[in-house]
């Protein structure tokens, strides 16, 4: 097993290097030179600009610049924001827990409901239940997230606000303004529990519900469809027939024999979903004013704050690669043939 893990990690290195290359070139492809961006108004002073260029090392050949960039990156120095002057890495770490909390809940929702819908649809293939579940899934993954978010706000917040004001869900921020939690882990739910502030916990939870639902809809739909098709395929296998011939209860056949093998492609899909999930987080955070890295990056694009763009992309890509590694390891765990082969 260990050699399997090491092998997988080794394959990541070229990909990671490739990403650093892309991140590096972003700064150099953006129109306007970085020195002027940094100087702002002072950029009209030519001497100042030239000395800035020297200071930033921009007069060196590209390969040298890349080397500097790479070594700085590996030491954790990803530059500073042009707008806030704060180090990119620090800002990322500060804002990341919000996004992580959101995506975690979205993914949990997606897995629970996706697997559930998919299993039910597969077991009751052809029934009304099956067709409704799949219709729901189709709508779920055809819906533009940003629109779904706006509609959700319309129904669950404004709409409920008119009829059942107590149940109306909040749509902005992570927690009601009146709660002033000291950030320990950065995760509102955890922090509020740690500080035994139950009202704050409830507030944080209610703020999380709508965005997580909206973000998790697309992954849920994909997982539901994949689960169904994967289970239907596995149900045709010879070993499922053997399991039935052993007199096992149908539920055991489904859960122990079918689902276990059906999980393999589902896990692959889950790995592939991380990308769209993070992309969706960007949009969701925009709509719900969620202070995470998605919103941070979008604002950076509008403000041409390229160090954030560079650093953010690099970190997110590293994250995606890491998650894919975990998925591959999980894959190896689920499928003994991959481990040994």
């Amino acid at each position: 097993m260990l050699s399997f893990v090491l092998r997988k990690m080794g394959m990541l290195i070229p990909t990671f290097l490739g990403i650093t290359l892309i991140a590096f070139f972003i700064a150099h492809l953006i129109p306007g030179d970085p020195a002027s961006s940094m100087l702002g108004i002072l950029a009209s002073d030519e001497n100042l600009r030239l000395s800035m260029i020297r200071q930033l090392g921009l007069d060196q050949p590209l390969t040298v610049q890349y080397w500097h960039y790479l070594s700085a990156t590996l030491q954790g120095n990803l530059g500073s924001s042009l707008v806030s002057r704060e180090p990119v890495l620090a800002e990322f770490l500060r804002l990341f827990p919000a996004t992580l909390e959101l995506t975690f809940f979205a993914m949990t929702f997606a897995l629970l409901f996706g697997l559930g819908l998919g299993i039910v649809a597969a077991v009751k293939r052809g029934s009304l239940l099956d067709r409704s579940a799949m219709a729901l899934a189709l709508i779920g993954y055809s819906m533009p997230i940003y629109w779904w978010g706006l509609l959700a706000i319309l129904f669950f917040s404004i709409g409920l606000g008119d009829w059942l004001p107590d149940l109306a869900l909040p749509v902005s921020g992570r927690i009601a303004a009146e709660y002033d939690l000291t950030p320990i882990t950065g995760f509102m739910l955890v922090d509020s529990l740690l500080q035994a502030n139950h009202a704050a916990f409830r507030s944080a939870l209610s703020h999380l519900l709508l965005p997580a639902l909206v973000l998790g809809t697309f992954p849920m739909a994909v997982i539901a469809r994949m689960t169904r098709s994967s289970m239907l395929e596995v149900m045709r296998e010879d070993y499922v027939r053997t399991a039935r011939a052993k007199g096992l209860a149908p539920s055991r056949v489904m859960l122990v024999h079918v689902l276990r093998n059906a999980l393999v492609p589902i896990v692959t899909v889950v790995g592939l979903i991380v990308g769209p999930l993070l992309g969706g987080a960007v949009l969701t955070e925009s709509i719900f004013s969620w202070p995470g890295i998605g919103r941070w990056m979008i604002e950076a694009v509008w403000q041409r704050d390229y160090p954030i763009l560079q650093g953010g992309l690099l970190l997110i890509a590293a994250l995606v690669i890491f998650v894919n590694l975990l998925v591959e390891l999980l894959y190896g765990l689920l499928n003994p043939r991959i481990r040994h082969g």
Partner: peptide
């Protein structure tokens, strides 16, 4: 029926490798 199948009445199939659960 399930109490009998696999216990008093059992069956062996043609392709043994695919008839066993690979996981």
């Amino acid at each position: 029926r399930r109490r009998m199948i696999g216990k008093d009445l059992s069956m062996v199939f043609q392709d043994p490798v695919t008839s066993l659960n690979p996981a």
